[in-house]
Design a protein around this nucleic acid. Structure first.
Length: 277
DNA sequence: AGCTCAACCTGGCTGC
DNA sequence: TGCAGCCAGGTTGAGC
């Protein structure tokens, strides 16, 4: 579920409830995530005030006085704002109380993570997991000609498919498996094409497509924001209407050709063999 | 350095 | 109805 748009929408949804608030209690129901939740996290965070929540790629960064809590939603993670009186549900792995407001991290598959970066370790950019990330799709480094240049130059000599190249997030972050297929369809590029063989004009189309697809998804998520953060049932689906993703065998919405599904780098890719050359 | 692949974990769906 | 097998939004780390 969480690609960049979902993480961004989550950030926008929870920030008003958390920013400027002081953590009063932290309960770890099950801290066996991708990496174990630091055993002393409660001790570290209690009585600290969260000044801001930022997003870097698919990571959420909670800024506290003495450091930054780094949270990743993994495949199935969802954050919800609830009253502390509400009963925590199954798979609520960890909850942060800010007065009578609870921020609950729900994550069935435990691929998420919650880590701590103490201020003594320097700027958050030094955090190992963030260090190798590509640029933000909406920041200056990727806008205008910059995005095209980056995608083109960094791909020279690369033999991996453009699908895997984009998905890896080493050039631009935030494009997950769904929006990767969607962006390549938007740019009319065949996902199997080796990244190093794609011309500059085509990378220009791709850079624009990535921004468009992600922006649209954020807008779609934004509309269901309220439901999302207040829900204590299943999270609202942001899934925007996809043109190709999860549409194997169905007619392409532009030309009617059946959409193909293939596997690349252990992940499914969907594309239109007619529209994407 | 870049490529491929196993691994982390749980639930839901498909097909026998 | 039951159960085995496969698939799922992400990412690291090992081995070549």
């Amino acid at each position: 579920m969480p690609e960049l748009p979902e993480v961004e929408v989550t950030k926008l949804g929870i920030a008003p409830y958390i920013e400027g608030k002081t953590l009063t209690e932290l309960i770890v129901h099950d801290g066996r995530f991708r990496w174990p939740v630091p055993s002393n996290l409660k001790k570290i965070l209690i009585d600290q005030t969260c000044s801001a929540i930022h997003r870097r790629g698919k990571y959420l960064l909670f800024y506290f006085e003495r450091g930054v809590m780094v949270l990743h939603l993994g495949m199935t993670g969802v954050l919800r704002i609830q009253k502390i009186q509400e009963e925590p549900k199954k798979y609520n792995r960890i909850e942060f109380h800010f007065g009578d407001t609870a921020l609950r991290f729900h994550d069935p598959r435990k691929f998420g993570s919650v880590l701590w970066h103490p201020i003594e370790h320097g700027p958050i950019e030094n955090f190992p997991l963030l260090k190798k990330l590509g640029v933000e799709p909406f920041e200056n480094e990727f806008s205008g000609v910059n995005g095209t240049k980056l995608l083109y130059e960094r791909s020279r000599g690369r033999t991996v498919s453009v699908k895997q190249y984009l998905l890896a997030g080493q050039v631009v972050v935030g494009v997950g498996n769904i929006y990767c297929s969607e962006s390549l369809f938007e740019a009319k590029i065949n996902p199997k094409t080796p990244a190093g063989k794609i011309s500059k004009p085509r990378y220009e189309r791709l850079a624009k497509a990535v921004q468009l697809i992600l922006k649209k998804a954020i807008q779609a998520g934004g509309s269901s924001l309220k439901d999302f953060v207040h829900s204590d049932g299943e999270p609202g689906h942001f899934m925007v209407l996809t043109k190709v993703y999860d549409r194997a065998g169905l007619p392409c919405k532009e030309c009617g050709t059946p959409i193909k599904q293939i596997t690349q780098g252990q992940r499914s890719t969907y594309y239109c063999p007619q529209c994407q050359k």
